[in-house]
Design a protein around this nucleic acid. Structure first.
Length: 540
DNA sequence: GCCGTCACG
DNA sequence: ACGTACGTGACGGCA
């Protein structure tokens, strides 16, 4: 039956849908439905691999990966309706996989119409360029990264696991002893009960959660250190419990035991700013801070014969603000090559660069972050742990120093109000239905989105474009370079040892050359055999 | 299925 | 007095 279809005239386009429940691909081929399971995929191999037949589907990355398992390369990825819908703002969209999973054939039949509608809307709303030039080419890059995975040392992971487990138990015992009873430390409700009712620790400075319960977050726990050491112990317990459950145990659960490789899944369009996200497991939030965190990172190792190379954009978002705002003072700060937060501090505190203290730098750093987040005085005061009045003064000073940044932020809000969306340099949009809302809370939130999205989103566009350019580089392909992970402003590669220098040079040049801003992009490199021991590396 | 919490950029 | 700076994913508790 499949044979007959192929003998007919070749279609110019086929439509694809992968049904998770049955593990089958549903294909619309010259208006006929073909259903293939892993056993008979090969019957359409020539069609899948035909460059002249465009492929349209729902979640093409998943289909690409499925076919690759059977040595078939899906070529000419053309239109992904889930991506198109997301770019148009249907984030957790109308098209949910659950809804369509029960009626895959009906959904497949609708795909051509859905595609036509989405295509028209993308063009109408000027989103086709981002779709065509960034998101579609990225599908294959992400699929390849997910297929390669990252190697993990299971023996080492087991050892760290035991250490952390022992430490968690110790902390547990200590906490019970001080509390005078056993309770569930994982229950914020019970922790609050013990601290503030049983032990009668002062709750005057303690914040409440949205639901009116006394908060027991790390910040609140640190406030009670004068009265009891329980706060510190509970915080420590939480930290280690987190490492144990969210990382060590999780990795053991999802690892491919035979290959000793962990495979993540990147979501291309989940984040409303255009960032990627990573799930099952999330490899974009590997812990870094503590000694145990470092021991976990040490478990991620380069494949035999390869070295890790990490390449991260230095201060990507601030460079973008300085450039897009065309703020000469901030641009000069970057061009000087000095520490940007220290330079900012010198401006805000009106002192010489050399006179900037760590505390001043810390405040300036928070101001710089605040800009990216669309801060208000209240939020900044809270984050920087200072009185509201003082925060107002700091922000005023910052904006009078960097007045084009202030103008830029004003313009971003203004444009968002007029257009109903915010937009990145490369045309990605975030629709902001609440930007003119009467509810001040909702409106203020939309304004923060309006400020943050063009910055975070432009950075996301840059990194996505870098990934595509790297993937298109024939030389890198030839010398065996693989991209393993993307962590927002950083890419992790695996490189055959003998080609390290050449690869590093091409990678740095490619990433820095993605776009020419007023402030040049700078990429820092580091190499190593595991994720703990990465040493900075000069490509030239 | 939501909440509080905490890991990351 | 309060609404209290962006984007995520994952956990256990709890109803």
């Amino acid at each position: 039956m499949v044979k007959n279809f192929i003998d007919n005239k070749l279609p110019s386009e086929i439509f694809l849908y992968f049904n998770n429940t049955s593990n089958q691909i549903f294909i619309l081929y010259n208006n006929k439905t073909i259903i293939l399971s892993s056993r008979n995929l090969n019957k359409l191999k020539a069609i899948f691999e035909n460059e002249n037949i465009v492929k349209t589907g729902y979640d093409l990355k998943k289909i690409y990966k499925f076919l690759r398992k059977y040595d078939i390369e899906l070529k000419n990825l053309h239109f992904d309706v889930s991506i198109a819908a997301a770019l148009l703002g249907n984030l957790r969209g109308n098209i949910t996989s659950r809804k369509i999973a029960s009626e895959p054939e009906i959904f497949l039949g609708l795909l051509p119409t859905i595609k036509e509608n989405l295509l028209n809307e993308l063009k109408e709303k000027n989103l086709f360029k981002v779709f065509k030039e960034i998101e579609i080419p990225l599908i294959k890059v992400l699929a390849e990264m997910e297929i390669v995975g990252i190697k993990i040392d299971l023996n080492k992971l087991e050892d760290v696991g035991k250490e952390v487990e022992r430490e968690v138990k110790n902390l547990k015992d200590k906490i019970y002893a001080i509390a005078g009873m056993k309770f569930n430390i994982n229950s914020p409700k019970q922790v609050a009960e013990i601290l503030f009712n049983k032990l009668k620790i002062s709750k005057k400075a303690i914040r409440k959660t949205r639901t009116g319960q006394l908060s027991t977050g790390a910040k609140e726990l640190s406030k009670i250190s004068e009265e009891s050491e329980l706060g510190k112990l509970i915080a420590e317990y939480r930290e280690l419990f987190k490492l144990q459950t969210s990382y060590i145990e999780k990795f053991k659960k999802v690892v491919d035991k035979k290959r000793k490789v962990i495979y993540t899944t990147f979501n291309q369009v989940k984040a409303s700013t255009g960032r990627l996200s990573s799930e099952e497991p999330n490899l974009q939030n590997l812990p870094t801070k503590s000694e145990y965190a470092q021991k976990i990172k040490e478990c991620f190792i380069a494949s035999k014969g390869f070295k890790f190379l990490s390449a991260d954009y230095s201060q990507l978002e601030l460079r973008i603000i300085a450039s897009l705002a065309n703020d000469q003072k901030m641009i000069n700060a970057f061009l000087s090559g000095l520490d940007i937060h220290k330079k900012t501090a010198a401006e805000v505190f009106n002192v010489n660069y050399d006179e900037v203290t760590d505390e001043m730098r810390q405040k300036a750093k928070m101001l710089n972050f605040g800009i990216i987040y669309g801060m208000g005085a209240r939020g900044f005061a809270e984050a920087a742990n200072m009185p509201y009045e003082e925060a107002v003064i700091f922000i005023d000073e910052y904006f009078s120093d960097f007045f084009n940044v202030a103008n830029y932020i004003f313009t971003l809000k203004q444009l968002a109000r007029e257009r109903g969306y915010s937009v990145t340099l490369f045309g990605r949009k975030r629709f902001l239905p609440s930007i003119n809302a009467l509810n001040p809370k909702l409106r203020a939130q939309a304004e923060r989105f309006a400020i943050n999205m063009p910055i975070q989103g432009t950075a996301a566009d840059i990194v996505k474009m870098a990934m595509i350019n790297l993937d298109n580089n024939e030389r890198l392909k030839k010398i065996g370079v693989r991209i393993l992970l993307q962590v927002h402003d950083e890419l992790l590669f695996e490189i055959p040892k003998k080609n390290l220098s050449e690869a590093a040079r091409i990678i740095k040049e490619t990433m820095e050359g993605v776009y020419k801003f007023a402030v040049p992009l700078v990429v820092d490199l580091a190499i190593g055999d595991d994720l703990r021991n990465l040493k900075s590396f000069s490509a030239f």
